[in-house]
Protein backbone atom coordinates (compact mmCIF):
# COMPACT_ATOMS: atom_id res chain seq x y z
CA UNK A 1 0.00 0.00 0.00
CA UNK A 2 1.16 3.45 -0.88
CA UNK A 3 1.08 6.01 1.92
CA UNK A 4 -1.87 8.36 1.49
CA UNK A 5 0.32 11.42 1.42
CA UNK A 6 2.44 10.03 -1.41
CA UNK A 7 -0.68 9.06 -3.29
CA UNK A 8 -1.97 12.60 -3.12
CA UNK A 9 1.35 13.96 -4.35
CA UNK A 10 1.28 11.57 -7.28
CA UNK A 11 -2.20 12.69 -8.18
CA UNK A 12 -1.36 16.33 -7.87
CA UNK A 13 1.74 15.99 -10.01
CA UNK A 14 0.05 13.73 -12.61
CA UNK A 15 -2.62 16.37 -13.00
CA UNK A 16 -0.21 19.34 -12.96
CA UNK A 17 -2.08 22.01 -14.94
CA UNK A 18 1.01 23.96 -15.91
CA UNK A 19 2.76 20.87 -17.30
CA UNK A 20 -0.36 19.93 -19.27
CA UNK A 21 -0.51 23.41 -20.76
CA UNK A 22 3.15 23.39 -21.74
CA UNK A 23 3.04 19.89 -23.25
CA UNK A 24 -0.38 19.89 -24.90
CA UNK A 25 -0.92 23.61 -25.50
CA UNK A 26 1.22 24.14 -28.62
CA UNK A 27 -0.06 21.02 -30.39
CA UNK A 28 -3.67 21.79 -29.55
CA UNK A 29 -3.29 25.40 -30.66
CA UNK A 30 -1.85 24.66 -34.12
CA UNK A 31 -4.21 21.72 -34.57
CA UNK A 32 -7.21 23.94 -33.83
CA UNK A 33 -5.99 26.79 -36.06
CA UNK A 34 -4.82 24.74 -39.03
CA UNK A 35 -7.21 21.79 -38.93
CA UNK A 36 -10.38 22.25 -36.87
CA UNK A 37 -11.07 25.86 -37.88
CA UNK A 38 -10.47 25.22 -41.61
CA UNK A 39 -12.73 22.15 -41.50
CA UNK A 40 -15.54 24.21 -39.92
CA UNK A 41 -14.82 27.09 -42.33
CA UNK A 42 -14.89 24.78 -45.34
CA UNK A 43 -18.13 23.27 -44.06
CA UNK A 44 -19.60 26.78 -43.87
CA UNK A 45 -18.35 27.70 -47.35
CA UNK A 46 -20.30 24.83 -48.85
CA UNK A 47 -23.46 26.92 -48.29
CA UNK A 48 -22.02 29.88 -50.20
CA UNK A 49 -21.39 30.71 -53.82
CA UNK A 50 -18.36 32.62 -55.06
CA UNK A 51 -14.67 33.24 -54.34
CA UNK A 52 -12.54 35.70 -52.34
CA UNK A 53 -12.19 38.13 -55.28
CA UNK A 54 -15.85 38.35 -56.26
CA UNK A 55 -17.26 37.91 -52.77
CA UNK A 56 -19.54 35.24 -51.35
CA UNK A 57 -23.33 34.97 -51.33
CA UNK A 58 -25.29 32.66 -49.06
CA UNK A 59 -27.28 30.18 -51.14
CA UNK A 60 -28.36 27.56 -48.58
CA UNK A 61 -28.45 24.04 -49.97
CA UNK A 62 -28.18 25.09 -53.64
CA UNK A 63 -24.62 23.70 -53.95
CA UNK A 64 -25.87 20.28 -52.87
CA UNK A 65 -28.76 20.41 -55.32
CA UNK A 66 -26.28 21.45 -57.99
CA UNK A 67 -23.96 18.57 -57.07
CA UNK A 68 -26.63 15.95 -57.64
CA UNK A 69 -27.70 17.56 -60.93
CA UNK A 70 -24.15 18.00 -62.19
CA UNK A 71 -23.30 15.14 -64.61
CA UNK A 72 -19.58 15.70 -64.07
CA UNK A 73 -19.95 15.50 -60.28
CA UNK A 74 -22.03 12.34 -60.51
CA UNK A 75 -19.49 10.86 -62.89
CA UNK A 76 -16.66 11.74 -60.47
CA UNK A 77 -18.61 10.22 -57.58
CA UNK A 78 -19.28 7.07 -59.60
CA UNK A 79 -15.64 6.82 -60.66
CA UNK A 80 -14.44 7.28 -57.07
CA UNK A 81 -16.74 4.58 -55.72
CA UNK A 82 -15.99 2.12 -58.54
CA UNK A 83 -12.24 2.71 -58.18
CA UNK A 84 -12.40 2.29 -54.38
CA UNK A 85 -14.44 -0.92 -54.58
CA UNK A 86 -12.26 -2.56 -57.25
CA UNK A 87 -9.03 -1.50 -55.51
CA UNK A 88 -10.20 -2.65 -52.09
CA UNK A 89 -11.24 -6.07 -53.37
CA UNK A 90 -7.99 -6.40 -55.32
CA UNK A 91 -5.76 -5.26 -52.49
CA UNK A 92 -7.37 -7.54 -49.93
CA UNK A 93 -7.53 -10.61 -52.20
CA UNK A 94 -3.99 -10.25 -53.57
CA UNK A 95 -2.59 -9.19 -50.20
CA UNK A 96 -4.23 -12.11 -48.43
CA UNK A 97 -3.11 -14.59 -51.08
CA UNK A 98 0.46 -13.34 -50.75
CA UNK A 99 0.27 -13.40 -46.95
CA UNK A 100 -0.91 -17.04 -47.04
CA UNK A 101 1.94 -17.80 -49.47
CA UNK A 102 4.46 -16.23 -47.07
CA UNK A 103 3.18 -18.05 -44.00
CA UNK A 104 2.26 -21.49 -45.29
CA UNK A 105 4.38 -22.05 -48.40
CA UNK A 106 7.55 -20.01 -48.10
CA UNK A 107 7.65 -20.08 -44.30
CA UNK A 108 11.04 -18.88 -43.06
CA UNK A 109 12.32 -18.29 -46.58
CA UNK A 110 9.72 -15.59 -47.26
CA UNK A 111 11.89 -12.72 -46.06
CA UNK A 112 13.47 -11.91 -49.43
CA UNK A 113 10.23 -12.14 -51.44
CA UNK A 114 8.38 -10.11 -48.81
CA UNK A 115 10.96 -7.35 -48.90
CA UNK A 116 11.08 -7.14 -52.71
CA UNK A 117 7.31 -7.18 -53.19
CA UNK A 118 6.87 -4.50 -50.51
CA UNK A 119 9.31 -2.02 -52.04
CA UNK A 120 6.97 -0.29 -54.57
CA UNK A 121 4.86 0.88 -51.61
CA UNK A 122 7.56 3.40 -50.62
CA UNK A 123 8.07 4.83 -54.12
CA UNK A 124 6.57 8.32 -54.53
CA UNK A 125 3.14 7.95 -56.10
CA UNK A 126 3.86 10.57 -58.75
CA UNK A 127 6.88 8.54 -59.86
CA UNK A 128 4.71 5.42 -60.04
CA UNK A 129 2.13 7.27 -62.13
CA UNK A 130 4.74 8.50 -64.61
CA UNK A 131 6.39 5.08 -64.74
CA UNK A 132 3.13 3.36 -65.68
CA UNK A 133 2.35 6.08 -68.16
CA UNK A 134 5.57 5.19 -69.99
CA UNK A 135 5.10 1.44 -69.52
CA UNK A 136 1.74 1.50 -71.30
CA UNK A 137 2.66 4.19 -73.82
CA UNK A 138 1.89 3.65 -77.49
CA UNK A 139 3.26 4.95 -80.75
CA UNK A 140 6.71 6.32 -81.46
CA UNK A 141 8.04 5.55 -77.99
CA UNK A 142 6.21 2.34 -77.32
CA UNK A 143 6.35 0.91 -73.80
CA UNK A 144 7.05 -2.74 -72.94
CA UNK A 145 3.37 -3.60 -72.46
CA UNK A 146 2.38 -2.71 -75.99
CA UNK A 147 5.64 -4.10 -77.33
CA UNK A 148 4.76 -7.43 -75.70
CA UNK A 149 1.20 -7.30 -77.07
CA UNK A 150 2.67 -6.65 -80.53
CA UNK A 151 5.11 -9.49 -80.16
CA UNK A 152 2.40 -12.05 -79.43
CA UNK A 153 0.33 -10.71 -82.29
CA UNK A 154 -2.45 -9.03 -80.35
CA UNK A 155 -1.55 -5.54 -81.53
CA UNK A 156 -0.91 -2.52 -79.37
CA UNK A 157 -3.61 -0.69 -77.46
CA UNK A 158 -3.87 3.06 -76.96
CA UNK A 159 -4.62 2.71 -73.24
CA UNK A 160 -4.85 6.42 -72.46
CA UNK A 161 -7.23 7.32 -75.29
CA UNK A 162 -10.21 5.87 -73.43
CA UNK A 163 -11.59 6.08 -69.90
CA UNK A 164 -11.81 2.29 -69.68
CA UNK A 165 -8.18 1.84 -70.76
CA UNK A 166 -6.94 4.44 -68.27
CA UNK A 167 -9.04 2.83 -65.55
CA UNK A 168 -7.49 -0.59 -66.20
CA UNK A 169 -3.97 0.85 -66.07
CA UNK A 170 -4.84 2.79 -62.89
CA UNK A 171 -6.04 -0.41 -61.21
CA UNK A 172 -3.02 -2.45 -62.31
CA UNK A 173 -0.72 0.34 -61.19
CA UNK A 174 -2.24 0.66 -57.72
CA UNK A 175 -2.26 -3.10 -57.17
CA UNK A 176 1.35 -3.35 -58.34
CA UNK A 177 2.26 -0.57 -55.93
CA UNK A 178 0.36 -1.72 -52.87
CA UNK A 179 -0.08 -5.51 -52.90
CA UNK A 180 3.20 -6.10 -51.09
CA UNK A 181 2.17 -3.59 -48.46
CA UNK A 182 -1.17 -5.29 -47.82
CA UNK A 183 0.58 -8.65 -47.82
CA UNK A 184 2.81 -7.52 -44.95
CA UNK A 185 -0.17 -6.04 -43.13
CA UNK A 186 -2.13 -9.30 -43.32
CA UNK A 187 1.00 -11.42 -42.81
CA UNK A 188 1.44 -9.81 -39.39
CA UNK A 189 -2.14 -10.82 -38.58
CA UNK A 190 -1.55 -14.40 -39.70
CA UNK A 191 1.55 -14.69 -37.54
CA UNK A 192 -0.60 -13.87 -34.53
CA UNK A 193 -2.58 -17.10 -34.97
CA UNK A 194 -1.18 -19.49 -32.34
CA UNK A 195 0.74 -22.41 -33.80
CA UNK A 196 -1.07 -24.79 -31.39
CA UNK A 197 -4.47 -23.86 -32.88
CA UNK A 198 -3.22 -24.70 -36.36
CA UNK A 199 -1.53 -27.86 -35.15
CA UNK A 200 -4.64 -29.23 -33.43
CA UNK A 201 -6.75 -28.39 -36.49
CA UNK A 202 -4.26 -30.32 -38.61
CA UNK A 203 -4.52 -33.29 -36.23
CA UNK A 204 -8.30 -33.12 -36.71
CA UNK A 205 -7.72 -33.58 -40.42
CA UNK A 206 -7.99 -29.99 -41.66
CA UNK A 207 -5.37 -29.39 -44.32
CA UNK A 208 -4.81 -27.05 -47.25
CA UNK A 209 -7.80 -25.00 -48.30
CA UNK A 210 -9.99 -26.52 -45.56
CA UNK A 211 -7.60 -25.26 -42.92
CA UNK A 212 -7.60 -21.80 -44.51
CA UNK A 213 -11.38 -21.62 -44.81
CA UNK A 214 -12.40 -22.89 -41.41
CA UNK A 215 -9.54 -21.84 -39.18
CA UNK A 216 -7.29 -19.21 -40.74
CA UNK A 217 -9.87 -16.84 -42.27
CA UNK A 218 -12.15 -16.70 -39.20
CA UNK A 219 -9.16 -16.06 -36.94
CA UNK A 220 -7.81 -13.25 -39.14
CA UNK A 221 -11.14 -11.42 -39.45
CA UNK A 222 -10.12 -8.51 -37.20
CA UNK A 223 -7.00 -7.67 -39.21
CA UNK A 224 -8.95 -8.20 -42.46
CA UNK A 225 -11.55 -5.70 -41.25
CA UNK A 226 -8.93 -3.08 -40.38
CA UNK A 227 -7.30 -3.59 -43.77
CA UNK A 228 -10.60 -3.17 -45.62
CA UNK A 229 -11.32 0.08 -43.79
CA UNK A 230 -7.80 1.37 -44.42
CA UNK A 231 -7.90 0.33 -48.06
CA UNK A 232 -11.29 1.83 -48.90
CA UNK A 233 -10.58 5.08 -47.05
CA UNK A 234 -7.34 5.57 -48.93
CA UNK A 235 -8.72 4.66 -52.34
CA UNK A 236 -11.68 7.04 -51.91
CA UNK A 237 -9.05 9.79 -51.53
CA UNK A 238 -7.02 8.79 -54.59
CA UNK A 239 -5.36 11.82 -56.20
CA UNK A 240 -1.62 11.73 -57.02
CA UNK A 241 -1.45 8.56 -59.07
CA UNK A 242 -4.51 9.38 -61.19
CA UNK A 243 -3.29 12.91 -61.83
CA UNK A 244 0.21 11.73 -62.80
CA UNK A 245 -1.11 8.86 -64.93
CA UNK A 246 -3.42 10.67 -67.32
CA UNK A 247 -4.48 13.93 -65.64
CA UNK A 248 -7.93 12.48 -64.89
CA UNK A 249 -8.52 12.13 -68.61
CA UNK A 250 -9.18 11.61 -71.41
CA UNK A 251 -11.30 14.69 -70.78
CA UNK A 252 -12.65 14.15 -67.30
CA UNK A 253 -13.42 10.46 -67.72
CA UNK A 254 -11.11 9.26 -64.95
CA UNK A 255 -11.47 12.26 -62.63
CA UNK A 256 -12.18 11.26 -59.01
CA UNK A 257 -13.94 13.58 -56.54
CA UNK A 258 -10.62 14.78 -55.11
CA UNK A 259 -9.39 16.00 -58.48
CA UNK A 260 -12.78 17.42 -59.47
CA UNK A 261 -12.78 19.43 -56.25
CA UNK A 262 -9.23 20.63 -56.93
CA UNK A 263 -10.10 21.73 -60.47
CA UNK A 264 -13.34 23.38 -59.38
CA UNK A 265 -11.49 25.53 -56.84
CA UNK A 266 -8.19 26.25 -58.53
CA UNK A 267 -9.12 26.24 -62.22
CA UNK A 268 -12.63 27.70 -62.02
CA UNK A 269 -12.28 29.67 -58.73
CA UNK A 270 -15.55 28.20 -57.54
CA UNK A 271 -14.69 28.06 -53.83
CA UNK A 272 -18.17 27.42 -52.50
CA UNK A 273 -19.00 24.54 -54.82
CA UNK A 274 -15.50 23.11 -54.35
CA UNK A 275 -16.07 23.04 -50.59
CA UNK A 276 -19.34 21.20 -51.17
CA UNK A 277 -17.51 18.52 -53.17
CA UNK A 278 -14.94 18.19 -50.37
CA UNK A 279 -17.76 17.80 -47.86
CA UNK A 280 -19.46 15.11 -49.94
CA UNK A 281 -16.15 13.23 -50.07
CA UNK A 282 -15.69 13.53 -46.30
CA UNK A 283 -19.23 12.28 -45.62
CA UNK A 284 -18.65 9.41 -48.05
CA UNK A 285 -15.50 8.34 -46.13
CA UNK A 286 -17.30 8.52 -42.78
CA UNK A 287 -20.39 6.65 -44.01
CA UNK A 288 -18.39 3.86 -45.60
CA UNK A 289 -16.30 3.36 -42.45
CA UNK A 290 -19.35 3.30 -40.16
CA UNK A 291 -21.16 0.98 -42.55
CA UNK A 292 -18.29 -1.53 -42.67
CA UNK A 293 -17.95 -1.43 -38.87
CA UNK A 294 -21.67 -2.00 -38.36
CA UNK A 295 -22.04 -4.84 -40.83
CA UNK A 296 -18.88 -6.53 -39.55
CA UNK A 297 -20.14 -6.39 -35.99
CA UNK A 298 -23.49 -7.84 -37.03
CA UNK A 299 -21.72 -10.68 -38.85
CA UNK A 300 -19.58 -11.51 -35.87
CA UNK A 301 -22.51 -11.58 -33.43
CA UNK A 302 -24.62 -13.64 -35.83
CA UNK A 303 -21.97 -16.33 -36.00
Amino acid sequence: MRPAEGHNTVHRVLGDKKAILILLGPALLVYTLIKLVPVAWSFGLSFFDGNPLGGFTFIGFDNFVRFFNDPQAIHALGFTVLYAVVITIGQILLGYALALLYVFVLKNASNFVRTVVFFPAVIPTVAVGLLFRSMFAVGQNEGPVNAALDAIGLGSVDWFASGAGTFIVAILMELWRSMGFFAVLLYAGLLDIPEETLESARLDGATGLKLVRHIVIPLSLPVLLSSVIFSINNSLKVFDTILALNGGGPGTETTPLTLYMFNTVFSYSDYGYGSTIALVLTILCLLVTVFIFRSARRDITRN
Binding site: I34, K35, V37, P38, V39, W41, S42, L45, N233, L236, K237, T258, M261, F262, V265, Y271, G274, S275, I277, A278, L279, L281, T282, C285, L286, T289
Partner: peptide
Amino acid sequence: MIPGQMILVPL
Protein backbone atom coordinates in the same frame (compact mmCIF):
# COMPACT_ATOMS: atom_id res chain seq x y z
CA MET B 1 -10.23 10.30 -41.47
CA ILE B 2 -10.77 13.79 -42.85
CA PRO B 3 -9.44 14.18 -46.39
CA GLY B 4 -6.96 16.98 -47.12
CA GLN B 5 -9.45 18.57 -49.53
CA MET B 6 -11.51 19.62 -46.53
CA ILE B 7 -8.91 22.15 -45.32
CA LEU B 8 -7.52 23.23 -48.69
CA VAL B 9 -9.75 26.19 -49.49
CA PRO B 10 -9.61 28.09 -46.15
CA LEU B 11 -5.87 27.52 -45.77
